[in-house]
């Protein structure tokens, strides 16, 4: 069932690639922004989270640092991994360890969804996200809802999830393009 798939996601998945859509709903239930892009994950510790719309942003964790490239502003910000855990929603999924080791897990009753939902509360509170609800279907984790301390909800839907495929390592490295401002010092 869902719980086995959830465990499998946290212990068997080495790489993941998917398109995503994101909607951010504020504490009054108002849609703040819709965006979309692609995510690449390589456990442990590496991801690329690219927003294609409304603005192009590239967020790359290369295992040591997290690079945030705002294409429109020609501005790159780099921070050590431990200082950028809220850089992208996928940052909560970086470890390949049993889910219970990282989160306390609660099954949720979500009868209006075709997925099985679980609420994960991080054991170590080191990111702005306080809760992460995962919707599990036949492809594993297909939807995600992140809650933060301001009552804001970030809804992520993954489309075309592929796991344990070969992803070129260049996806997980970042070199600032020529002429772009780089702020911060990589560790």
């Amino acid at each position: 069932g869902g719980r086995e798939k959830l465990d499998e996601f946290f212990t068997q998945v080495n790489t993941m690639q998917s398109a995503f859509t994101q909607q951010v709903i504020d504490d009054k239930g108002e849609l703040r922004q819709s965006s979309s892009g692609n995510v690449f994950l390589s456990r442990p510790g590496k991801f690329r989270w690219e927003y294609a719309a409304p603005d192009k942003h590239e967020i790359v964790a290369d295992g040591k640092n997290v690079w945030v490239y705002d294409v429109e502003l020609d501005q790159v910000t780099v921070k050590p991994m431990n200082k950028a855990l809220s850089a992208a929603p996928v940052a909560m999924l970086l470890q390949k360890q049993p889910v219970d080791k990282q989160f306390s897990v609660q099954a949720m009753d979500a009868d209006n969804s075709t997925l099985e939902w679980f609420r994960l509360t991080p054991k170590k509170q080191d990111s702005d996200f306080t809760t992460m609800d995962l919707g599990v279907g036949n492809n594993g984790v297909e939807e995600m809802i992140l809650g933060d301390k301001f009552g804001q909800q970030t809804y992520i839907k993954f489309q075309g999830v592929r796991t344990n495929i070969n992803i070129d390592n260049s996806r997980f490295s970042f070199t600032p393009p020529k002429g772009v401002d780089v702020v911060g010092t990589p560790s």
Partner: peptide
């Protein structure tokens, strides 16, 4: 002033 990635104020 809004966060460009989430649109939150």
């Amino acid at each position: 002033i809004k966060n460009p990635l989430t649109g939150s104020i």
